[in-house]
């Protein structure tokens, strides 16, 4: 179908969107899979961090286990956990 390399001949992305069952060679499906996994990872992180903090883990412990800085995990989760009524350990 695609004769030559012209940009004008590029496949219409809409054709892919119409066929969501298309396999991962379709960049639209591949990117959607990335979005879905990222969202799932975010939700898993929220749930797991909350569980750890309720179990009395420190921010440092959570940060070490997640492989991020303590500041990053605090910034990302502190407000939500406080609003959820989780009592957080003061330091360490």
């Amino acid at each position: 179908m695609d004769e030559g390399e012209g940009v004008a001949d590029a496949r219409d992305p809409a054709a892919d969107a119409r066929d969501p069952a298309a396999d991962l060679r379709d960049p639209g499906a591949e990117l959607a899979a990335v979005v879905a996994m990222r969202r799932l990872a975010d939700r898993m992180e929220d749930a797991a961090v909350e569980k750890a903090m309720r179990a009395g883990w420190s921010w440092s412990d959570v940060a070490q286990a997640l492989g991020v800085t303590r500041q990053a995990v605090h910034k990302k989760h502190a407000k939500r956990l406080i609003e959820a009524g989780v009592s957080l350990r003061r330091r360490r």
Binding site: P20, A29, A32, A36, M37, L40
Partner: peptide, 13 residues
């Protein structure tokens, strides 16, 4: 759409 994306990645929850 979300579940379809996960399924395409072979992820089941």
């Amino acid at each position: 759409e979300f579940e379809d994306g996960l399924a395409a990645a072979g992820v089941s929850v």
